[in-house]
């Protein structure tokens, strides 16, 4: 549905987006994750046709955005980082204006507005001036604006920034719901937000995509291979000896645990030894209370991928 091929955006010598390519299928919920200045907003501005690329092209449903700007913009709903609101208008006036420029058929405008107001739950403030609304409500008006043209693809740039925790949860739920029948692309610099909403994450750093995949698989893929964490009740010494005897375990290291009365070990292993560990513990009459593959948390992965790299020269 969305195809991005080798897009690069330069501002003079500065490269904001560097040779980025990906493709997003219908119905996916994709999150762009990256520190501030990683190129997320620039990428989104390019996807929506607000900015052009220095190199590369974006096609949506097979149509290059530069050749069919109007057809493509009809398919897109965009909530930029700062919601583009005319604050001197009331919510309804504003949405009516947006509906007109998005090409909503005149007859359906009032019903469409009512529908969208209901979706983002702002029906009660529809007659108020936007400038008098709270930040959370303004953000919802921004969402309503993106939805009003009934687009297939929704692009949200940092949809929850600046909101309080309750509002964040509400907006997230709303986005998840929208994801049921839209293709959603969103960006965030907050990690658990992306992993909570999206089934696919693209991590950006310094204008490049450094990782792309399911948040869980990503963490496993990038983990140090072959480590197993085992938590056993009681008898540390016996457990350690038993574990060391299991075929395929090359090293046993102690690990601090907060579980009372338990000990925890990190096993360096050769291949998947989980069944053997289980059997060994069972025959030694040791109580195994937890066993998991040592994966990096998404947080650790994020930090690893986005730190310690040099700025990409032009």
């Amino acid at each position: 549905m969305v195809e991005v091929r080798g897009i690069t955006k330069r501002y003079g010598p500065h490269v904001a987006v560097n040779d980025v390519g990906f493709s997003i299928g219908k119905g996916e919920i994709v999150g762009f994750l990256g520190p501030n200045g990683a190129g997320k907003s620039t990428t989104m501005n390019i996807l929506t046709g607000y900015l052009s690329t220095t190199e590369g092209e974006v096609t949506i449903d097979g149509m290059p955005i530069l050749e069919y700007p109007e057809d493509i913009k009809r398919k897109l709903g965009y909530l930029p980082e700062n919601p583009p609101l005319y604050v001197d208008m009331t919510v309804t006036e504003y949405l009516k204006f947006v509906a007109q420029i998005k090409g909503v058929a005149k007859k359906t405008v009032p019903s469409r507005i009512a529908e969208v107001l209901e979706t983002v739950k702002i029906t009660d403030v529809r007659k108020r001036l936007i400038k008098n609304l709270s930040k959370g409500y303004k953000q919802r008006v921004g969402l309503a604006q993106a939805l009003i043209g009934d687009p297939e693809i929704l692009i949200f740039d940092e949809p929850t920034s600046g909101l309080d925790p309750k509002q964040i949860i509400e907006i997230r739920d709303l986005i998840r719901k929208l994801g049921e029948n839209h293709t959603v692309i969103l960006s965030s610099h907050i990690l658990h937000e992306v992993s909570a909403i999206c089934r696919r994450v693209m991590i950006m750093n310094l204008g490049r995509i450094v990782a792309d995949g399911n948040p869980d698989t990503l963490a496993i893929q990038h983990s140090p291979t072959g480590q197993l964490i085992v938590t056993v009740l009681g008898e540390g010494e016996k457990a350690r000896a038993t574990l060391a005897d299991v075929a395929g375990v090359t090293r046993v290291t102690d690990r601090a645990t907060e579980e009372t009365g338990a000990v925890e070990f990190v096993l360096d292993t050769d291949g998947d030894v989980r069944p053997k560990v289980f059997e060994a513990m069972s025959s030694a009459k040791l109580t195994l209370i937890q066993m998991r593959v040592n994966t990096m948390s998404l947080e650790e992965l994020f930090l690893q991928l986005t730190s310690g790299e040099q700025e990409v020269p032009a």
Binding site: N45, T48, G49, Y50, P69, E70, D71, K73, R74, L76, Y78, P80, N82, P84, L85, Y86, V87, V98, I101, K102, G103, Q145, G149
Partner: peptide, 14 residues
């Protein structure tokens, strides 16, 4: 300044 141009320029109008 208010970034409302992002709305206008990403809408299907010339």
């Amino acid at each position: 300044r208010l970034k409302t141009d992002q709305l206008l320029l990403t809408s299907p109008i010339k």
